[in-house]
């Protein structure tokens, strides 16, 4: 993301038209309708549909983070980007690790 170039100079050099936001919004709509199509329109097996919609969700979350929240924008050390990636790592570990470990519950019970 090349957000640094446009924002380093502060508010005096803000883009004249909010292209980033409009592109982000249109892409979000496309991805949402994409998920809807995978669920309703495609007749793929359910595992394939789930993989597809999760991937689309990750892309849509990235649009919010990079195009709307300007995660990479920085006016000093860019600590927040590392922090958010670390939080996503923890979140992924909690979700995926729990699903994985609970797959063994039939052996334990």
């Amino acid at each position: 993301m090349a957000s640094n170039d446009t924002t380093k100079h502060g508010q005096h050099h803000q883009e004249a038209f909010p292209w980033k936001h409009i592109i982000g919004f249109l892409l979000s709509l496309v991805l949402t309708f994409g998920s809807l199509w995978f669920v309703l329109g495609s007749h793929l097996p359910s595992q394939a549909v789930i993989s597809a919609i999760v991937i689309l969700a990750v892309f849509q979350a990235m649009i919010q983070l990079f195009l709307f929240m300007h995660l990479t924008e920085t006016f000093g050390p860019n600590y927040q980007q590392f922090l958010i990636f670390f939080a996503f790592f923890i979140a992924f570990t909690v979700v995926a690790g729990s699903i994985w470990i609970m797959a063994f519950k039939s052996y334990v019970a």
């Binding site: 809807l36 669920v39 359910s46 919609i53 689309l56 969700a57 849509q60």
Partner: peptide, 14 residues
């Protein structure tokens, strides 16, 4: 985004 994917869409698929 994750709620509509994991809760609502997956709730319709599975």
């Amino acid at each position: 985004i994750f709620i509509f994917t994991v809760v609502y869409f997956m709730g319709k698929v599975l």
